[in-house]
Design a protein around this nucleic acid. Structure first.
Length: 275
DNA sequence: CGTATCTCCTGCAAGC
DNA sequence: TGCTTGCAGGAGATAC
């Protein structure tokens, strides 16, 4: 599951090999992603130079003069650079021939990802695209201020974990990091978002910043291996204190960690340390 | 508007 | 061994 750190790692890993390079061709082996890959995309991209790669939330934006290619990795998607001639794997749906000599491949078994094409007004201002327009602030930017979570949560009765994972509140806090951040600050995941005070939200805000920044740092250690498909997501190297550890002892108090389903998401917490 | 549920899809694990 | 069944999960769409 690509979380924000892995998307950021992908962005940084691709940039030196793709920015300033020309796309010779795009081959669509399977257009059936979350939304169909636009039929005109190969023709639109051919010959275009990628002027830059940026990220908004978990969306990656490949900028060209003709348009912006917007990619989301969904749950199982990945982008890898390989040498031409590398055998194509099952679920390698999209292949870009780059004039740097690399081939960029989009691999996505579950096809929850997408690859869209932004033109016209959305080329001039991609933030106006419907999928981007209502996104919350970047968790590592100044827009994610100390007071943001507290002020946004007033009057909300949803569980704080659902609130945190709402991309309209703040982007990039997926299931893994929502679990981890709540454990770190001792907040019960099912607590009503609107009934948590400003002080606790400040500590939660700092925990989200710290955990994501740390994960990106660790993800960065995989950058040297990113090319040619050897990249491991940074968070697999990060010690996870609760996610995936239901039934195991709490690292703080030793009691058994509990698990509940919240909107079909695995939610793990310590009933003693989190209130 | 806020909240909960449904939905897409495939790999994997468990059960028989 | 090989089949069937259940399940996870990002986030937009839909229903209330």
């Amino acid at each position: 599951m690509p979380e924000l750190p892995e998307v950021e790692t992908t962005c940084r890993g691709l940039a030196p090999h793709v920015e300033g390079r020309r796309i010779r061709a795009l081959t669509v082996h399977d257009a059936r992603l979350r939304w169909p890959v636009p039929a005109e995309l190969p023709a639109m991209l051919a010959g275009q130079t990628v002027t830059g790669i940026s990220r908004r939330g978990k969306y990656l934006l490949f900028h060209t003069a003709a348009g912006i290619m917007m990619i989301h990795l969904g749950m199982s998607g990945s982008l890898r650079l390989v040498t031409p001639g590398t055998p194509r794997k099952t679920h390698d749906h999209l292949v870009w021939d780059i004039d740097s000599g690399w081939e960029l491949r989009f691999h996505d078994p579950r096809r929850f990802g997408c690859c869209l094409w932004l033109t016209g007004a959305q080329l001039a201002d991609p933030q106006s695209h419907p999928l981007l327009a209502s996104l919350g602030p970047e968790p590592l930017s100044a827009d994610f201020g100390d007071d943001h979570l507290f002020s946004q949560s007033r009057g909300k009765s949803a569980p704080v974990k659902s609130f945190l994972m709402d991309s309209h509140v703040v982007v990039g806090v997926g299931n893994i990091y929502a679990n981890e951040a709540l454990f770190r600050v001792g907040i019960h995941p099912l607590r009503e978002a609107g009934r948590i005070g400003a002080e606790r939200y400040l500590r939660l805000t700092e925990a989200i910043r710290d955990i994501l920044a740390e994960a990106i740092t660790r993800g960065g250690t995989t950058l040297r291996d990113f090319v040619n498909g050897k990249g491991e997501p940074g968070y697999f190297q990060q010690e996870l204190t609760v996610y995936g550890r239901a039934g195991q002892p709490c690292v703080r108090c030793g009691r058994m960690l509990k698990e509940v389903r919240l909107s079909a998401r695995s939610t793990v917490y310590c009933g003693h340390c989190q209130h």
